[in-house]
Design a protein around this nucleic acid. Sequence first.
DNA 1: CTGAAAGCGCTAACAG
DNA 2: CTGTTAGCGCTTTCAG
Lengths: 347, 347
Amino acid sequence: MAPVTIKDIAKRCGVGVSTVSRALNNHPDINPETKAKIMEVIHETGFLPNDSARYLKRTETNTIALVVKGISNPFFTSMIRIMEDYVQKKSYATILRHVTAEENEVTVALSLIKERKLKGIVFLGGDFTHDPMLLSQIRVPYVFSTIGNLDERPEGEAACANIAVDDVEASRQAVDYLIGLGHRRIGIVAEGLHVPSVGQLRYRGYRLALERRGITVDDHLVYEITEGGERYSMKNGYIAAKALLAANPDMTAVFCISDVLAIGACRAIAESGKSIPGDVSVIGFDGIEEGQYYIPKLTTVRQPVEEMSKESIRLLFDMIEKKEKPRNIIMPAQLLIGESSGPVKKT
Amino acid sequence: MAPVTIKDIAKRCGVGVSTVSRALNNHPDINPETKAKIMEVIHETGFLPNDSARYLKRTETNTIALVVKGISNPFFTSMIRIMEDYVQKKSYATILRHVTAEENEVTVALSLIKERKLKGIVFLGGDFTHDPMLLSQIRVPYVFSTIGNLDERPEGEAACANIAVDDVEASRQAVDYLIGLGHRRIGIVAEGLHVPSVGQLRYRGYRLALERRGITVDDHLVYEITEGGERYSMKNGYIAAKALLAANPDMTAVFCISDVLAIGACRAIAESGKSIPGDVSVIGFDGIEEGQYYIPKLTTVRQPVEEMSKESIRLLFDMIEKKEKPRNIIMPAQLLIGESSGPVKKT
DNA sequence: CTGAAAGCGCTAACAG
DNA sequence: CTGTTAGCGCTTTCAG
């Protein structure tokens, strides 16, 4: 059964295909009556235009793409929603593309640009560094959102638009807050320590806080997640905290580089018979909604999701519509004090 | 800057376009040397074939689609992963399509089938009932997964393949377990009470449990979520429990029709100064991983995610490859006893 | 306002 | 093994 096409509609209406196309695309140059009749037949037959064919032919569309790596991360979920809303207000369409851990997000973007004739791209999550050759092939404006401070990137990528919090400084403050509470034996659950990554930046903040306060960094207190696949998972946080606890009975606080990890860590601590924050304080990073429903409510470094999302889109449209140059924007992070942190227990 | 096409590659290699196409698609009828040379040029130029054009031309592809409504629901996240793996083992490609609350999943599926020449569809989440006219237009095998027991569906849809747990019975057992623990004043946080939906089935199980034990159903203990958008959210669970608690000081247990709701409810109970399960027991539904990291660990009705996912794909392929008829499969749910439920406090 | 005709980039016969 | 050719379904000039 051949599917119904624009030709069939044209035949049934006794008009040419171009007229049907005009009806479909809300073209002004069409008789309202003709249009009404065509639309009726379209509904009757349940005709759905073939997007592949449309995009193949079109030379430009008002569409941008959100290319997301790690879609299961709840931190991104809310950003996606806000961005989609905001793009819609600009009368642009959004296409959401999830890339797996194995795919290269730049390649995926390149492919989408060609096929969907995109006006711009927002990258959410994903790798910190990219092949400059590949990157240079992107001929439309694009923005990296929440992928770490640009200044930390290799030289070649300095021209990219970028929006993020100052991961190093925000982490430093979080750990400094723990130190202020009297903690000295502070663990960290991190990832990507030896490659340019958000994890590395946050780890650097951790070290910085300790060093400035004259506390020696003890490698036994550093847990690096190396497990493949979804690194930022509760399970990994759980495993990490178990290991840290076992190796450091004197540890009184843990800084986790994401809330999801922190939740897993809390569970491990609770299971070991210790109380939070009585025996061990826990701090996360991101400020996901879930953390506020956790018991205890998570202390965390809150990234300004709403503003970052809007700013990402704003920046992208500045480049698309006003031909502005890529900018590098640092957003303020905020330490959100919940119930998972407290003063160190007097001994 | 016109993007590089298959023609450019052909020209640069001094071959015809069809030879390039053959190289691209691993066609056997091609000289290995020619192919190697073509592939080299392809990599050099960074050529990416235009999928729209490919799919437009192709008459069939070994592809199935996962059409998911409510992608932020963690319960689906793991199912998606398992299904994708399993489909890959069958040497088929998967395309994951997220549909928003406003979109109609059947329409989306219809459009995908035409464009991507799909062999089959799995619907995950989404509406319980569909326009039979629309449904009948789907000309490839499809399976509804975790969308409630088919027997409860209107007559016209009896021919659909369906995989789910027995929502009514599983809910009945969960509530019966609470009754066995001595609870009499049991609240429920549900959704879609008056429309055919998973929520309605689970609510029916709740009523059934009470009735069989001779406990009168008290409408004050029933909270129906009506808030638009994402209904299954921690926030809604939180709001619901707050309301139930305020209206029923004597309530000693709450059955939530999803784990996400249950987590929100726990937080509300904890904030009201009551203890879980000391003062109030909480039971969820789904068995998401997150629930096992929650404090207290959630008591829940666990859906067999792994088996349901595999069975969904197996069923779909039985229909695709062996031309089997649609079947209706009921999977066993299992009450997973955690730390959020316990005997009613003696007064 | 409307129709005819020319492709978009690719695959799939069909001849060599 | 390889090149030529005819469209896939649609949008878009370009003439009416």
